Computed example of a mutant assay.
Amino acid sequence: MSYPILFLWSTPRSLSTAFLRMMLERGDFFVVHEPLSSIVSQGFATIGDERVESEAGLVELLREKSRNSAVFVKEVTDSRYGLIDDPAFPHLATHTFLLRHPEQSIASHHAMKPEVNRDEIGYEHLLDVFDTVRVARAEVPVVIEAERLLADPGTVVRDYCLRTGIAFLPSAMTWTPDDRREWSRTAPWHRDAAGSSGFTVIPKTYRTTVHNDPRLAAFHAHHLPFYERLRAHAVPAAGQSVGAGSR
C-alpha cells in the first residue's frame, strides 16, 4: 500500500510555515520542511532522523516514508531545483501552491535577508514548477492565496482539503505556539509561525519596500507578471478533487 505525498510550493515569506504548522497539528501526515532548499543551502536535508544529500536520495526517502504514512512536503522556490527537469517529478506527488502578493513578500524577504537577489524572490521559479506540473499532468494544480487564507482560514483550508482529497480537520486550525524541530535550520525566519496559534493577521510595516527602494521595485516589476499568471488559477470556490487521497 502507498499513501499520498502532498507538496505545497511557495515563494519565501508567503505564510507557508503557518500552513505546515497546521499540517503538523493534524497528526496524520509525516511532515517535511524545505528539503530541497536545505540540500542547496547546506548540502543535505534532515528528514526525521535520516539525512539525505541529493535530490535523488530525497525522492527515494519520500517514497519510502509514503509506504507507512501520508507525507506532506513544504518547499520554497528561492532556487530552481534540478528535480523539476525529471519527467517523473510531476507524478511524484500531488503538487499544490500557496501564493502571496509580491509587494509584501519582497519587503519581508529583504527584512530577513538584505542581500537577497532577484531570482531568490522566487515567483519565476514558482511558475516554472506550476507549469511543469500542469502540462505533465494535464490538470490545473490547486493554488491558494495567502491573503484569503488569513481572511477566511476555515473556508480556504476546507476547500484545499476537498481539492486534494484529504479530510478537513477543524481541530488542526489552532495549535499551541512553539518552535518546532522541523524548521530548526531556518528558525529565525519562522518566529511569527512559532509564536502563532492559528492563521492570524500580524500587522507589519517595513522600512524598505518596493515603493521606496529602486532595487526592490525592480524585483517587483520582474516578478509581478509571474505572480499574476499564477493568481489567474487561484479558484475561490470548491471544486473537484485533484486526487491526493487516491494515490
Rank of each mutant, 00 (worst) to 15 (best):
R163K: 13
Q104A: 13
L8E: 08
A193I: 02
L58C: 10
A194T: 02
L58G: 08
F226P: 00
R26C: 00
S2K: 02
P102A: 05
P225Q: 10
G82L: 11
D28Y: 05
E25A: 15
S38W: 11
V156N: 02
P4K: 01
R181S: 04
P170A: 12
Y3N: 06
A107F: 03
G48T: 05
D28W: 01
R137C: 12
I202E: 10
T77N: 01
S246D: 01
S246G: 05
L36F: 14
D86R: 13
R185G: 01
A187L: 06
A193P: 04
V135Y: 13
I121H: 06
T11E: 12
L98C: 10
L92H: 05
M173T: 09
T174I: 07
A218S: 15
G48S: 02
E139I: 03
G27A: 03
D152Q: 09
K113T: 11
V76D: 04
V157Q: 09
I84M: 12
W9G: 13
Q104K: 13
I106L: 02
L83P: 04
V133N: 07
V76A: 06
G27Q: 01
D86A: 11
F168R: 00
A221D: 13
D78S: 15
N212Y: 02
E60K: 15
K65G: 00
A107H: 07
R207T: 13
A111Y: 07
Y3I: 00
R180L: 11
P4A: 04
P114F: 11
F130D: 06
H211S: 07
T132K: 14
P170T: 05
S37F: 11
H222W: 02
G43S: 08
V31E: 02
I47N: 03
W183N: 06
T209C: 04
D192H: 11
R13M: 10
P214Y: 12
T176P: 01
K113D: 05
S66T: 00
R26I: 00
R231G: 01
T77L: 11
R229P: 02
S79A: 13
A151N: 08
R185H: 11
E124A: 14
S105T: 15
R21E: 10
D28G: 07
G27S: 05
L99F: 11
V76T: 15
E53Y: 13
P225R: 03
A70H: 00
E145K: 10
R80P: 01
V235A: 10
E228R: 11
T205D: 12
S171C: 01
P35T: 07
T96E: 07
H220R: 12
